[in-house]
Nucleic acid binder design. Structure first.
Length: 420
RNA sequence: CGGGCCGUAGCUCAGUCUGGUUAGAGCGCCGGGUUGUGGUCCCGGAGGUCGGGGGUUCAAGUCCCCUCGGUCCGCCCA
C-alpha cells in the first residue's frame, strides 16, 4: 500500500462549495479597494529572511514563528508571515510615485500549533498606502476596511483605535513602561516577566488575569504623544467621525507587529470567541521603509484574515455558499456527442452549462442535473435525437416541459432562461 | 511548550463506559418500482485493514501499553 498523503499540518484545502465564499470575499475586496484607487500588487511569497526580520525584534511572528529555509544557492529565505513587509520592499525597489496605494491577497505562513482560526498557512487580504504621512490616509484605510466588513454583511465587527505616537514618543513610552513594569514584577504573572524587560509593549497584550489587573493601572501611551502626534491622531478621529465609522479608543492596544507608529487599530468580531477574535488590523509605520534600506517614507496599511472573516460570517450567517451554479445542465443518454456539442454551443454563446459524463443512466444524470443548481435541464434521448429536437425541462418550477429545435437552440433558449 | 477530545463505509457519524451471533444509520454510488425513457417519492444492492503495532482473554471496534495522525483549549496572533 502506497502512503496516503494529506495536507500538511496546519494547512487546508478549500474546495467547492466553500471556495465560492472565498471568491465572493476576494471579489468584494477587489471592488472596494479598486473603487478607492488602490491597485493590485503581486509580490513573491518568499523573501530574503531579512525583509521580515526588520519587522522588529518584538514581533512574535518574527521571533519564533518564521517559516524559513535555505535554497540551493544557500540563500536564507522565509515564507511571508504577513503582507506589509513585501509591499514596502517592493516600494523601495521600484520607487513609484506617491502616495502609492495598493492591495493584495496572499497566503501567510507562521510556524505554530494550529487551532480553530489559526493555521500554518492562512490567507489575508490587505491594503497599504505608502509615501505619505497624511492622516486622512489612515482614516481612508480604516473606513475602507470598515466598509468592506459591512459589505460582507458582518454586523458584529467593532473597531478599536490607538496611537503609538512618533517613533520618539513610542520609544519614550516604552522605556517608561519598562521601568514602571520593572517595579511591579511581583504583581505580574511570572510568564510575562521576560517580556516586561525585553518587550514591554507585549505585556499590554497579556490576557493573563493577574497581569491584567496591573496593566489596568499602567501609564497611557496617549500621555506621551508629542503635539504633532496628537494632531495626527485627532485628524484621524475627525475623519472617522465624519465618515460615520464607530470606534473605541483603547490605549492598551499595541498589536503584535512591532513597527507601528501613530495610528494602530484592530477589528474584532463578537461572533468569534476567545483569543482568535481579531478579523483584521493595521497601523502606520514610519520607520519601516528606511529599516528595509529605502529612503525614509511613511506608510499605513492593514491586513484582514480571510479564514477569520469567514468564521465570523458563519456565526452570523452572512456570505452564503449559494450561487456559482450553471444555468443549464445537458442530459444526453445517446452516447454523449449531442451533450458535448450542445454544452459548448451554449457556453460559446454566453450561457453557462454543464453536463454529465461516463454515459450514466437518465436517472443518474437527472440527479446530477438537480444537484448542479441549474434552472433547466436539456434532454437528448433517442426520440429527440431522431427528431432533431431537445427537450427542455424546468428543474425549479412545475412548468411543463418544452420541445425545442436542435438548430437555433441558443435563440430559443435565451428568452426562456430570462424568465425562468 | 502544557492540557483535553477524536481516528469505524467515498463523506458525516452511532456502537467502546457494562468484551460475546454475519459491525450499523444518513448522504453519495449502482439497480429496480413510479414517471412523459426523465431529479424530488418507494424498494433493493454493492462498499469496511474498526489509524498502526503489541498485549490480556475462550473471545477485542470495545480493556491495557506503545505509536502515528487529526482536532480543540491556554499563551500569542489573522
Amino acid at each position: 500500500m502506497v502512503e496516503q498523503f494529506q495536507a500538511p499540518k496546519g494547512t487546508h484545502d478549500v474546495l467547492p462549495v466553500e471556495s465560492y465564499r472565498w471568491q465572493q470575499l476576494v471579489a468584494s475586496f477587489a471592488q472596494v479597494m479598486g473603487g478607492a484607487g488602490y491597485g493590485l500588487v503581486q509580490s513573491p511569497m518568499f523573501e530574503d529572511i531579512g525583509v521580515f526580520q526588520r519587522l522588529g525584534e518584538g514581533t512574535e511572528v518574527v521571533r519564533k514563528e518564521m517559516y524559513d529555509f535555505y535554497d540551493k544557492g544557500e540563500r536564507h529565505l522565509a515564507l511571508r508571515p504577513e503582507g506589509t513587509a513585501s509591499v514596502v520592499r517592493a516600494f523601495n525597489q521600484h520607487r513609484p510615485t506617491v502616495p502609492w496605494k495598493v492591495w493584495y491577497v496572499t497566503p501567510c505562513f507562521r510556524y505554530e500549533e494550529p487551532q480553530a482560526g489559526r493555521f500554518r498557512q492562512h490567507h489575508q487580504v490587505g491594503a497599504e498606502a505608502l509615501g505619505s504621512a497624511d492622516p486622512d490616509l489612515d482614516a481612508e484605510l480604516i473606513a475602507t476596511q470598515h466598509d468592506f466588513y459591512q459589505r460582507l454583511g458582518l454586523k458584529s465587527v467593532s473597531l478599536r483605535l490607538n496611537s503609538m505616537g512618533s517613533a520618539n514618543d513610542r520609544r519614550a513610552y516604552t522605556e517608561h513602561l519598562a521601568a514602571w513594569l520593572g517595579q511591579r514584577l511581583d504583581d505580574l504573572d511570572p510568564q510575562d516577566h521576560p517580556n516586561a524587560s525585553e518587550h514591554p509593549l507585549r505585556v499590554l497584550d497579556s490576557k493573563r488575569e493577574r497581569s491584567r489587573r496591573i496593566i489596568a493601572q499602567a501609564p497611557h501611551i496617549t500621555d506621551f504623544l508629542s503635539d504633532e502626534a496628537r494632531a495626527h491622531f485627532e485628524r484621524v478621529q475627525a475623519g472617522l467621525d465624519a465618515l460615520g465609522v464607530a470606534y473605541e479608543l483603547d490605549t492598551r492596544l499595541v498589536r503584535g507587529l512591532d513597527y507601528y507608529t501613530h495610528s494602530t487599530w484592530e477589528f474584532a468580531s463578537a461572533a468569534l470567541s476567545g483569543a482568535q477574535n481579531a478579523v483584521g488590523g493595521g497601523g502606520r509605520y514610519d520607520g519601516l521603509a528606511e529599516s528595509l534600506g529605502g529612503k525614509p517614507a511613511s506608510g499605513v496599511g492593514f491586513g484582514a484574515g480571510i479564514e477569520r472573516i469567514l468564521l465570523a460570517a458563519d456565526a452570523e450567517q452572512a456570505l452564503d455558499t449559494d450561487g456559482g451554479a450553471v444555468e443549464v445542465f445537458v442530459v444526453d443518454v445517446c452516447g454523449g456527442s449531442a451533450g458535448r456539442d450542445i454544452t459548448f454551443e451554449l457556453r460559446r454563446n454566453g450561457i453557462s452549462a454543464d453536463r454529465a459524463f461516463d454515459g450514466r443512466s437518465m436517472k443518474a444524470q437527472m440527479k446530477v442535473a438537480d444537484r448542479s443548481g441549474a434552472r433547466v435541464a436539456l434532454l437528448v434521448g433517442t426520440d429527440e435525437l431522431a427528431a432533431d429536437t431537445v427537450t427542455l425541462r424546468y428543474l425549479r418550477s412545475g412548468e411543463p416541459q418544452v420541445t425545442l429545435l436542435r438548430s437555433g437552440l441558443v435563440e430559443q433558449l435565451a428568452p426562456l432562461l430570462a424568465r425562468a
